[in-house]
């Protein structure tokens, strides 16, 4: 497969050795991955919840402060996820659950970009209690649904392929 040279390279790095030889590295990375996930999901619940109108009396402008929180949390998820990949690259990359998860994250990224470029400015002028435009609500709903499926894919990865 096209990713095989990448997997071979990952296995040749010193960090692969760290992930394999130090037995508590994997559980540590998993725990950090979970903590990053709840921070990311919490930030999304605030922003998307406000746009969807679930918590429409939250100040929209202040809710947007959770966007950088989501981005930092995502970076942590990404880095800790990269650590898992170093540990067992061939099994992860060949795993359909992992491939789906990565594809969904890419779509969620495009969706977030669409939100930022297309809706963000207009939303800032919303008064407290005012409903967001329908278009923005669709983006927010897609975001929550995608992340739920990303969590699901992540959790069933061990059952859809050989990776642990």
């Amino acid at each position: 497969m096209f990713w095989e040279p990448f997997a071979t390279w990952l296995e040749s790095t010193w960090f692969h050795g760290v992930m394999i030889d130090i037995y508590w590295m994997f559980p540590l990375m998993e725990t950090l991955h979970f903590l990053a996930l709840i921070w990311l999901f919490g930030a999304l619940l605030v922003v998307d919840g406000r746009v969807l109108g679930i918590v429409r009396f939250l100040n929209m402008k202040a809710c947007m402060k959770f966007i950088p929180v989501a981005m930092i949390a995502f970076s942590f998820s990404f880095l800790t996820g990269l650590a898992f990949l170093h540990a067992d690259p061939f099994n992860y990359l060949a795993n359909p659950g992992f491939q789906w998860k990565m594809a969904l994250i890419a779509i969620a990224g495009i969706n977030a970009l669409w939100f930022w470029l297309g809706e963000h400015k207009e939303l800032l002028s919303l008064a407290d209690g005012q409903q967001a435009p329908f278009r923005a609500k669709v983006i927010a709903l897609i975001s929550i649904v995608l992340w739920v499926f990303i969590i699901i894919m992540g959790r069933i990865l061990p059952y859809t392929g050989g990776a642990g």
Binding site: I38, L58, N59, A62, C63, K65, D128
Partner: peptide
């Protein structure tokens, strides 16, 4: 997610957010 967001607010993050408005979350 909700626990983290609300506690961040109580700890002083995004102070413009009204805490009672979190109710539906």
């Amino acid at each position: 997610g909700v626990v983290v967001a609300l506690n961040m607010r109580v700890l002083g993050f995004a102070k413009e957010l009204s805490i009672p408005a979190f109710d539906n979350l």
